[in-house]
């Protein structure tokens, strides 16, 4: 009995994965985005194995000379900084930080946003009123300044960066998912579930949630992309985690060093990585947008 239940579950999971793959694969841009994300994830997972040096280790070339501000070469494929740090190693290890922050804050914020949206939309009335006023208040918070204030007050720690991003970013997903929930709860199958005596909990998570799923995934991708951009911006301004290397932090060090005039390679690699990863997320999310909003498909 248990095993047949499990089997059915696995079958559904496989079907769901096939379905998602079909959605992503249908469009060349989202297919490109998907594979870029896969490559970055692999780099992040195996970062310490790939990076030849520590991020803040002074490197020497094969002739034993101190390698400061070297343009890309066979030895240092992405060049070095003015203090002789290997940019390739920094870039690889920073991938881990960026993906960690992006995934963590993106996922936590979509869980908060989805639940608040579902609950506010489903119950309506006073509860909805309170939750939506709370969302309005968050819309009054300037995002980046809020992170700057929080970091300035509590310290340059990874946890605080994630916390600050999560506290603000769920607002958009909550609003959108609430609107969708309101339209779904008026459909007939919800009334039927109610008539059968299904609990509110069951209706919300078993009947409404699957129907807002494409929208939820769309906003999950957006939240991850926004988190990555925000973390990079905060790090660039000097309000990132001081002890972990990140793409934004690499550009902050470039800006501080005053070598912007000469070291184009120092600028190029973290910038390309940020843009590539965020664009990929946007491309993948657009594939889900077509599912979430079928009107777009006709075009």
């Amino acid at each position: 009995m248990v095993s047949s239940h499990l089997k059915r579950r696995l079958k559904y999971l496989r079907l769901a994965l096939v379905e998602h793959y079909r959605i992503i694969n249908a469009n060349p841009l989202s297919r490109f985005g998907f594979w870029v994300i896969v490559v970055f994830t692999l780099v992040a997972l195996f970062a310490p194995l790939i990076a030849p040096y520590d991020p803040w280790e002074m490197v020497y070339d094969s002739e034993g000379n101190f390698a400061a501000l070297q343009p890309p070469s066979w030895e240092f494929p992405m060049g070095t900084t003015h203090l002789g740090y290997d940019l390739f190693s920094q870039l690889v290890l920073a991938t881990r930080t960026t993906l960690l922050i992006g995934a963590t804050s993106g996922l936590i914020s979509i869980i908060i946003g989805a639940n608040i949206g579902l609950i506010a939309g489903y119950y309506g009335g006073k509860l909805d009123e309170v939750l939506m006023r709370l969302t309005d208040i968050l819309y009054g918070m300037p995002f980046l300044p809020f992170i700057i204030v929080l970091i300035a007050l509590f310290g340059r720690k990874l946890e605080f960066v994630i916390l600050a991003i999560v506290l603000i970013i769920w607002r958009t997903s909550a609003r959108v998912i609430r609107a969708q929930t309101i339209s779904i709860k008026q459909r007939q199958f919800i009334a039927m579930a109610k008539a059968r005596g299904a609990s509110d909990f069951r209706i919300i998570y078993k009947h409404i949630l699957p129907n807002v799923l494409p929208l939820l995934l769309l906003y999950a991708a957006f939240n991850i992309a926004w988190s990555i951009i925000t973390e990079a911006s905060a790090s660039f301004l000097g309000f990132g985690d001081g002890e972990t290397i990140s793409w934004g932090g690499m550009l902050y060090e470039l800006w501080l060093s005053g070598k912007t005039r000469v070291a184009w390679w120092w600028f190029a690699s973290p910038s390309v990585c940020i843009i590539l990863l965020v664009t990929s997320l946007v491309f993948v999310s657009r594939a889900y947008e077509e599912v979430a909003n079928p009107r777009l498909r006709k075009r």
Binding site: A225, I229, A232, S233, F236, G248, L251, W255, T260, R261, W264, F267, S271, I274, I275, V278, T279, L281, V282, F283, R286
Partner: peptide
């Protein structure tokens, strides 16, 4: 449009500075 949106302002700004100014 999508690529511009994915490029945070500090990157485009730096690029503009490096090319048009420096």
């Amino acid at each position: 449009g999508l690529v511009f949106q994915a490029a945070p302002p500090f990157i485009t700004g730096l690029l503009l500075l490096m090319v048009l100014s420096y």
